[in-house]
Amino acid sequence: MHSAHPGLPEFDYVKPASLAEASAFLKAHVGEARPFMGGTDTFVRMRDGFWKEKYLVDVKHLEGMQDITYDPAAGLVIGAAVNMNRVVASPLVKEHYPLLAEAAHSVASYQLRTRATIVGNICNASPAGDTTGACIAFDARLKVHGVDGFRFEPLQTFFKGPGKTVLQPGDIVVSIHFPPAPRGAQGKYIKLGRNAIGDLSIVGITVLGYPDASSSSGYRFKIALASVAPTPFVPAPAEALLAEKTITPALLEEAAQAAMDACKPIDDVRSSAVYRKAMVRNLTHKALVDVWGRLSAAAR
C-alpha cells in the first residue's frame, strides 16, 4: 500500500533573482533541485514521495516568464509561467491558435488551470497532456535557458520517454514559441475522459489541417494522440495518407484506421488498450470529419 504524506515533505523554497542565478543553482544541485511552475504535478509527486528534491526553485517571476506576445511574422510566444486560464482567455491565442485555447480549456478544472501551465506539462512529459498535441501540431519550439545561455528545442525531439525529456541539469524552459499558424488552418481537440468535463484523457485527439500546395492532396494534416503511447504520439502513416491521396469521406476513415493501427496503447487503471485503440479510430475520424468540413467549406 502506497499512501501519500499528509503534507509536503521538507524542502527549501528558492527564489533566484535571475535566470543565470537559477540555472547556476540547479546545475550546482543536480538531483536535489527542480524548477517549478504551478506545482500541479510537482506537489502531487512530492506528497507521494516519488520526488524527493531538497530545493524547489521558483522561476515564475523571471524575465519573460509571464508574457504572451504575438507578431504576425514571428508568431506567438507564451511565457513558461503563463497559466492555462490566461492562454484560454487570451484574444491573441483565440484569434490565431484557437486549437490551443480549446485544448487548454479541456485541462482539469478552472481553479487548477490557475496554476497549471503548458510548459510545465510539457516538461513533465506526461503522456496524457492535453495541450502538448496542439503544440506539436503547430511546430512549437521551447526556449531553454541553461548554464550556457539560451537555446531552442523543437518539440518533435523533446520527449525521451514518460517523464523524460532532453532537458539537462541547469535547464529552465522560459517560453514556448509558435510559428505563425498555417494560413487557413482549422483544428480540433477531442478529449475522451471518464467524466463529461475535466478528468485526465483516456485518449486525446489533436487534429490540425490546412491547405498546402506542396502536398498531393492539396492539404496537410497534423495529428497528435495523447495517452496512447509513453510520449505524445504522432501517427505518421495517417498524416501521410491525408497528404498523398485525394481527400474523400472514405479516405478520412482510412486515415483514422491508420492512426489506430499505428499506435500501441497499454492497459491501465483508466482504460483497456482495446478501448483506447477503438477510440483513437473513432475520434480521430470524428475530428477529421469536423476539420475537413470546415476546410472544404472555406474552399467553396
Binding site: M1, A4, R194, N195, A196, I197, L200, V269, R270
Partner: peptide
C-alpha cells in the same frame, strides 16, 4: 487486496458536468 485507484484522479465521482 490493494486499492489501485486511491485518489480522486482515478476514483472518479460525478462532477457538475455529469
Amino acid at each position: 487486496g490493494v486499492v489501485i485507484n486511491p485518489s480522486f484522479v482515478d476514483y472518479r465521482i460525478a462532477t457538475s458536468s455529469d
